[in-house]
């Protein structure tokens, strides 16, 4: 039982990390960025490239090396997100929503198959494989590496939460999400704030990508597809556009999957997850913490 809960929370914190970027972008420009999962993949690959470039240097200090690579990969992925927004989405700011959505799907394919051309179609083995001692807490087996990864994920989420609720930038993001035109009248450079939102969201996905690479040990150019959909599911469960809701949604999805797998068997995991998505979309489309959108007069 406690093992199931831990597994759920562990996977859930990954989902939450990726889902946050999804939710932020949706919140601010109402775009379902289907390429978001691919930024996660891009993070894993840029981490892979950096670790490769650092060579044997990292073998002894794998956790520290992974941490530095994590920061650099976040930077790279964040910038990729900014470029993606600038090239693919900003020109369509005034276009119908559908055009933007199709572009997002296109961007997703472009990132996937672009990576395939550069890095090849075969899965890559991550040069750092986190090993670690196992602890027993309330009967659950928890490895130190799992704890470290959850710790990083939680730290990133706390930082994001503080940024959004306390800082001037975060306030501007929330204001744009509510009313971009009014924000413009407050003197907010809306384009710049949107670019920053993409940077932050993408960097979080990139972080999750590197951590997944280090944990599972294997990456490939399509690894972002499923996680992108899962992150979307997590965001919907929690309430898309709502940050606390999205974090919660990630954890809930992780737990649902963990228990679902236990009861129904591993092959049912994705069926179960997406079944939950459909259930939420029909029964409670605003998610657990999502508020009903108030009509503006």
């Amino acid at each position: 039982m406690s093992q199931l809960i831990w597994n759920g929370l562990f996977v859930g914190s990954f989902y939450a990390l990726v889902a946050l970027g999804y939710s932020m972008v949706y919140g601010i420009i109402k775009l379902l960025n289907f390429a978001h999962g691919d930024l996660y993949m891009l993070g894993a690959f840029s981490g892979f490239a950096m670790l490769g470039a650092m060579g044997g240097l990292v073998k002894s200090q794998s956790l520290l090396a992974l941490f530095i690579v994590l920061l650099l990969a976040m930077l790279t992925t964040g910038l990729s997100g900014v470029v993606l927004e600038r090239v693919a989405y900003r020109p369509l700011r005034r276009a119908p929503r559908l055009a933007l959505l199709i572009t997002a799907v296109g961007a997703s394919f472009a990132l996937e198959y672009g990576t395939r051309i550069v890095a090849g179609a075969n899965p890559k083995v991550y040069p750092v494989r986190l090993g670690g001692t196992t602890l027993h807490v309330f009967g659950a087996r928890i490895t130190v590496q799992q704890l470290a990864l959850v710790g990083v994920a939680v730290a990133l989420m706390v930082a994001l939460h503080l940024l959004i609720t306390r800082s001037r930038q975060g306030r501007a993001m929330r204001a744009i999400a509510l009313d971009p035109r009014a924000a413009l009248l407050m003197g907010v450079d809306v384009d710049k704030v949107i670019a920053r939102t993409f940077f932050i969201g993408s960097a979080l996905a990139g972080a999750a990508g590197v951590m997944a690479g280090g944990y599972y040990g294997k990456i490939d150019f399509l690894m972002g597809f499923i996680i992108g959909l899962k992150a979307f599911t997590a965001a919907v469960i929690g309430g898309i556009g709502n940050m606390q809701g999205t974090m919660l949604g990630g954890l809930v999805l992780g737990l649902l999957e963990s228990f679902g797998t236990h009861w129904l068997g591993g092959e049912w995991r994705d069926v179960f997850a997406f079944g939950c998505l459909i259930l939420f979309l029909t029964v409670r489309p605003t998610g657990l913490l999502g508020e009903r959108v108030t009509e503006r007069v």
């Binding site: 929330r174 509510l178 009014a182 407050m186 003197g187």
Partner: peptide, 18 residues
């Protein structure tokens, strides 16, 4: 065009954004 889910104080702070 008040930012409806921002507090009164935060709304004023938005006015002072620049």
């Amino acid at each position: 065009r008040i930012f409806s889910t921002l507090t009164v104080h935060e709304n004023l702070l938005m006015g002072g954004y620049p």
